[in-house]
Nucleic acid binder design. Structure first.
Lengths: 205, 205
DNA sequence: GTCTATAAGCCGATAGAC
DNA sequence: GTCTATCGGCTTATAGAC
């Protein structure tokens, strides 16, 4: 555990939190640098531009998220005959763990939901170029488990699942956390509910 | 079919399209008034402020959307023993028809997806105060069809479904429209796929 | 109702001292 | 690497003429 974080890291964390709360256009570099206790000019020195700062906010978390997802997928496949539920868990749990990470990251799921809502071509291309292969790996693994599902139906359903997961992870909407349940337990429960729901949806006739 | 639209309507349509494309903070009133062929000061004259313009963009479409949804729900209930699929269709098809309406409205689903990503308290309260009762009516109708489903599970799943629907309606993600299929057919197909997926998810053990 | 003109302020980015 | 100071441009909103 480090008591000190670099200027770059502090900028990234502050940007993540403020982009989650106000959006990419809505959060200014002045707000970011004030929250990070850093000089305004430091952003351009370390990141060059606001657009590039946005990309780096994604890269920091997504690199680890995809690594964890692919590693979990590998573990599940090594068991020989993975269940649909175990494949979905390999996709969902790393996102959940990131969201519950005490070093921050819960804001990142909201940033990701923003990115989904943005139809910005530049951002989409960056995401699909760098992380599209993860979705493909999971699609193949799920296809193996559901050989009777047509490729088109599979992609429709994965699309629905992605949307549902993004929104569920960023905000547990109408479902309020019961009084006696911790935030972590609430999220774990959410993941379990989600996997059951998604598995049933994928198995639809 | 009217050849003339009022200044107010032209502002609303231009705002809807630009908010969909650039977000609420990202689209300026200057862009909006230029696209609407209207003077800059007209926005403040007709709507008072940018924030209020945002609210009115929602109100214009949501009033009609909720009316159509509740009317479709009523029709389905009058058949006596509605199927889960028919209830979901009563919820999904009005949104679909709005999105395919040639008077615009396809942009509105993207605006709605933005609103989901925004965690802005003011906007959320406005939406839940004015349109929360629709979700409740559907929840009750679905509970009647699935009496064994616990209330908590029901709300979790409706939350997932809302997220998936919003995302799917605003952007058909990885599923590309086949060459020989019209945009309308593509959307209709999407709705059918979605209802099958959501019904199976709700019926999960 | 629609216009011009302008107020008052925030924006991203950078030049240049240290 | 970090700072101050500042540039040029864009923002929402409004006062007041027509």
């Amino acid at each position: 555990m480090h008591a000190h974080f670099s200027t770059k890291e502090r900028i990234l964390s502050a940007a993540e939190e403020l982009f989650a709360r106000h959006g990419f256009a809505g959060a200014s570099l002045r707000q970011v640098t004030a929250a990070a206790n850093v000089n305004l000019a430091a952003v351009n020195y370390h990141f060059g531009s606001k657009d590039n700062l946005i990309n780096e906010v994604f890269r920091r978390r997504l690199d680890e998220l995809t690594a964890r997802r692919l590693s979990a997928l590998q573990s599940v496949r090594e068991t020989g005959a993975p269940s649909l539920e175990s494949l979905l868990e390999a996709f969902v749990l790393p996102a959940l763990n990131l969201a519950t990470d005490r070093f921050g990251g819960s804001a990142f799921m909201r940033v990701l939901a923003r990115a989904y809502a943005e139809h910005d071509q530049t951002l989409r291309k960056f995401l699909s170029d760098n992380y599209g292969h993860v979705l493909k790996s999971f699609a193949h693994a799920i296809q193996d488990v559901l050989p009777d599902l047509s490729k088109e139906d599979l992609y429709w359903r994965l699309d629905f699942i992605s949307g549902a997961l993004t929104y569920a992870m960023s905000d547990f909407g109408v479902v309020r956390r019961p009084a006696g349940r911790s935030d972590d337990e609430h999220r774990r429960h959410a993941a379990h509910e989600f996997v059951r729901f998604a598995a049933a949806g994928l198995r639809a006739p």
